[in-house]
Simulated scan of single mutants.
Amino acid sequence: MSEVIGRGGDLVPEVGDGAVPAPVPVEADDATYHWLRGRPRRCRLRGDGTAAQFARFVLVGGSSNIVYAMVFLLLRGQGSLLANVAGVALSTVLANELHRRLTFNAAERVDWLSAQWEAGGLALVGLALSTSALALVGVWFPSAPGVVQAILVVAVSALVGVFRFLALRGWVFSVAR
């Protein structure tokens, strides 16, 4: 018996003599994402499970950081404060919208303004915490090298990111909304 590639990309036995293959069972999340039928679970980045949402959260966060860096570099000649504020504002608005539409599939449940207000507030809390941690290092360890400061900001940002994911998933873009 030979195999051919089926609709979902999986190998399926080739059916001879014009017989119709058995239908692929439809799971609950397949009904929403019909193009997932037949794909293995490890390929289901568009699912509503926590792991898939977290993977999308990380991808959106990385993308928004790239946008921040580009805006900052483009505007740094106007002053680092203006470049920072513009970069944070633009990348946060973009990330919030991508989280609403892609990460949590909440475009029908949560309107744009609510998402910006609530998720933006969480982003500001994260910014305040990382800035405070950086200021405390400057006070407690004034001679700390830049690499230590960068590691601290990354660590605080990662911790804030995990809490932000949980808050966005459980509150801002919750299914129970």
Rank of each mutant, 00 (worst) to 15 (best):
E3Y: 15
E3A: 08
V4T: 10
G6D: 10
R7Q: 13
R7N: 11
G9Q: 11
L11G: 07
L11P: 06
V12T: 08
V12N: 04
G16H: 06
G16W: 14
G16Y: 10
G18I: 04
G18F: 04
A19L: 05
V20N: 04
P21V: 06
A22N: 07
V24D: 14
P25Q: 00
E27G: 06
D29I: 15
A31V: 15
Y33L: 14
Y33Q: 11
R39W: 02
R39Y: 07
R41T: 07
R41H: 14
R41Y: 14
R41F: 12
R42G: 04
R42E: 10
R42I: 05
C43P: 02
C43E: 14
C43I: 01
R44Q: 11
R46A: 14
D48I: 05
A51N: 08
Q53N: 03
Q53L: 03
R56H: 04
R56N: 00
L59C: 06
V60M: 00
V60Y: 03
S63V: 02
N65P: 03
V67S: 00
V67E: 08
V67D: 12
Y68A: 05
A69T: 14
V71I: 12
V71H: 13
L74M: 14
L74V: 06
L75V: 07
G77A: 10
Q78W: 09
N84F: 15
V85K: 04
V85P: 06
G87E: 05
G87L: 07
A89F: 14
A89W: 13
A89C: 15
L90W: 00
A95F: 04
E97L: 08
H99L: 00
R100I: 00
L102R: 10
F104S: 07
A107Y: 10
E108D: 11
W112R: 12
A115L: 10
Q116D: 13
W117C: 02
E118I: 01
A119G: 14
G120K: 06
G121S: 05
A123D: 05
A123K: 05
L124D: 05
V125P: 09
G126A: 01
G126R: 09
G126C: 01
S132M: 13
S132I: 12
A133L: 09
A133G: 15
A135L: 15
A135H: 08
A135P: 01
L136A: 13
V137S: 05
V139Q: 09
W140D: 03
F141K: 09
P142Y: 04
P142D: 01
V148Y: 15
Q149M: 03
I151K: 01
I151Y: 10
I151G: 05
V153C: 09
V154W: 13
V154Q: 08
V156L: 12
A158F: 01
V160L: 00
F163Y: 07
F163I: 01
R164G: 01
F165H: 04
L166Q: 04
L168F: 12
R169F: 06
R169H: 11
G170C: 09
V172G: 03
F173S: 00
F173H: 01
V175P: 04
V175C: 12
R177H: 08
